[in-house]
Amino acid sequence: MTDLFLPDDDTLYAALLARDPAWDGRAYVGVSSTGIFCRLTCPARKPKRENCHFLPTVAACLAAGYRACLRCRPLRPEGDGDPVVTRLLAALEADPARRWTEGGLTAMGLDPSTVRRSFKRQFGQTFLDMARQARLQAGLTTLAQGGRVIDAQIEAGYDSPAAFRAAFARHLGLPPGSFRANARLRADWFDTVLGPMIAVSDRTHLHLLEFADRKALPTELKRLHASCKGDMGFGRLPPIDEAEAQLTAFLAGRRARFDLDLALHGTPFTCRVWQALQELPAGSTVSYSELARRLGRPEAVRAVARANGANQIAIVIPCHRVLGADGALTGYGGGLWRKQRLIELERAYAQTERTPA
């Protein structure tokens, strides 16, 4: 288990020189010649190798007597101080059905390329993509409340039924008419600090929990739709309410573990991998090879990786806790920026469990 341990200093110094975003928030550098500490992505001039002291957390940097850098601001989440991001998020929240274009950004005195870079760096997607998702989610809310497809289309700001159905199909993988009223499985969405998530449940078990912008979501929903023979609709059932409540508490630092009834759609080996992931305590990490060894299948590293990637209940089945053999971030369906945030968040849980009562 890699836990809070860092790789060797040569690896981290190379990441510092490259400003590797894979280590942002997971390791920091204290510079003995200046007495400050920075993110590894800091744009400041790079210190000499002999002046670098690498530490795993902000708390460790402060305890060692380092002051926070004023350029990369390691005490604040990346993007918090970006006025462009703040302004556009407020505008999107005020009018989620607005049709945003690059021309609209220019009319606000903003450079579309700067906006694109800022949002990709902070959220792993562009502002225009985020705005399109907000429009579709407005339509999804109407459908979940029992509204007609035409009402959902209008609420989402689409003039053409064909355009709405095409956008909906691209986003969820199924056109609106594929969803039944009073179905056994119901789909709904809710907001989190890491972005909107879509959940699917029956009356007793959670079947899917994914970030709305995950590229594999349409495929996952198609597969789930086929497995239940099309008996899927929109709406909120008790497992979704409970998932939202527990996830909100987890992301707020108030709950380290989940207690949800899950319906696992996978082969016996895949389900074993998912169950092993759930046994990892918050704040710990593991490599694919180590997870394979724990399952008694040290030769099945690739199969473990495939099972990890096939997980369709994000965060609750914590596939974000699997790192590369060298401790670096590896692919994550929800985006590496979310994986980084989750690992950083969970360090507080790890520190609490280590603190003697």
Rank of each mutant, 00 (worst) to 15 (best):
C42D: 14
C42Y: 10
C42H: 10
C42V: 13
P43M: 09
P43W: 06
A44K: 13
A44M: 15
R45P: 10
R45S: 15
R45V: 13
R45K: 14
K46A: 14
P47H: 03
P47V: 12
P47T: 07
P47I: 10
P47W: 09
K48M: 03
K48P: 02
K48T: 03
K48A: 13
K48H: 05
R49H: 12
R49Q: 13
R49T: 09
R49V: 13
R49Y: 11
E50T: 11
E50S: 06
E50N: 08
N51Y: 08
N51C: 05
N51T: 11
N51G: 01
N51Q: 13
C52L: 05
C52M: 06
H53D: 08
H53N: 05
H53Y: 03
H53R: 13
F54L: 08
F54C: 10
F54A: 11
F54P: 01
L55H: 00
L55G: 00
P56Y: 02
P56H: 00
P56L: 01
P56A: 03
P56M: 04
P56G: 01
T57E: 09
T57Y: 02
T57S: 15
T57P: 06
T57L: 04
V58S: 01
V58D: 08
V58L: 04
V58F: 02
V58Y: 00
A59V: 09
A59L: 10
A59Q: 14
A60W: 03
A60E: 13
A60H: 09
A60M: 03
C61W: 00
C61T: 06
L62F: 07
L62V: 14
L62K: 09
L62A: 11
L62Q: 12
A63M: 02
A63L: 11
A63R: 14
A64Y: 01
A64K: 05
A64R: 11
A64Q: 10
A64V: 09
G65Y: 02
G65I: 04
G65D: 03
G65A: 10
G65R: 01
G65K: 08
G65T: 05
G65C: 01
Y66G: 00
Y66K: 05
Y66E: 04
Y66I: 06
R67G: 12
R67V: 04
R67F: 08
R67Y: 04
A68G: 09
A68E: 12
A68D: 12
C69W: 02
C69I: 08
C69M: 07
L70V: 14
L70I: 14
R71A: 12
R71G: 07
R71M: 14
R71E: 15
C72P: 07
C72E: 05
C72H: 01
C72I: 02
R73K: 12
R73E: 14
P74Q: 07
P74C: 06
P74L: 05
P74R: 06
P74D: 05
P74Y: 04
P74H: 06
L75E: 15
L75F: 08
L75W: 01
L75C: 07
L75G: 10
L75P: 05
R76I: 09
R76N: 06
R76F: 08
P77G: 01
P77Q: 00
P77T: 04
